[in-house]
C-alpha cells in the first residue's frame, strides 16, 4: 500500500510510455503508429507533471487570499507540459496528413506493402 501511495502516478506514466512504445515497435499500420505516438506523448506529460507534484500542495494560482506560497506545486513542469501538448497536436495533425497522402499514393496504410520503404 505504501509502495502504491508513492508510485501510483509513476506506474501510470511508465505504463503509458511502455504501451505507446510497444505499439510503435510492433504495429505496421500507419494510423495505429500515430495512435501509439499520442499515447507515448500523454505518458511523458503525465511523468513530468507527477515529478512536479508536492505532497498536500495546492495549484499554483493565488485565487483567494490566505494561500501560502510555500505550499504550492512546482509551476515550471506545468508550463512545459502546456507547451508540449500544443506542439503534440501540431505534430499529430501533420503526421495524419502524411498518412492520408501515403494512402493516396500506395492505396494502403500498411508499411510492408510499400515496396520502396521495405526494411
Amino acid at each position: 500500500m505504501s509502495f502504491l501511495h508513492d508510485y501510483v502516478y509513476y506506474i501510470g506514466a511508465f505504463g503509458l510510455v511502455a504501451i505507446g512504445l510497444l505499439i510503435i515497435l510492433v504495429k505496421r499500420n500507419l494510423i495505429k503508429l500515430i495512435i501509439g505516438l499520442s499515447i507515448l506523448d500523454t505518458g511523458v506529460n503525465m511523468f513530468l507533471i507527477s515529478v512536479g507534484y508536492i505532497r498536500r500542495g495546492t495549484a499554483p494560482i493565488f485565487s483567494r487570499p490566505g494561500l501560502e506560497p510555500d505550499g504550492m506545486v512546482d509551476p515550471v513542469p506545468q508550463a512545459l507540459v502546456l507547451t508540449a501538448i500544443v506542439i503534440g497536436v501540431a505534430i499529430l495533425a501533420l503526421a495524419l496528413a502524411l498518412a492520408v497522402r501515403f494512402y493516396k499514393t500506395y492505396g494502403t496504410l500498411d508499411l510492408r506493402k510499400a515496396k520502396e520503404l521495405r526494411w
Binding site: 508513492d6 508510485y7 508536492i54 512546482d74 515550471v76
Partner: peptide, 12 residues
C-alpha cells in the same frame, strides 16, 4: 526520483 518532494529552486 522521490514522489511528492520539492525539487527545483526556480519554481520557488
Amino acid at each position: 526520483i522521490p514522489f511528492g518532494a520539492p525539487k527545483t529552486e526556480i519554481g520557488d
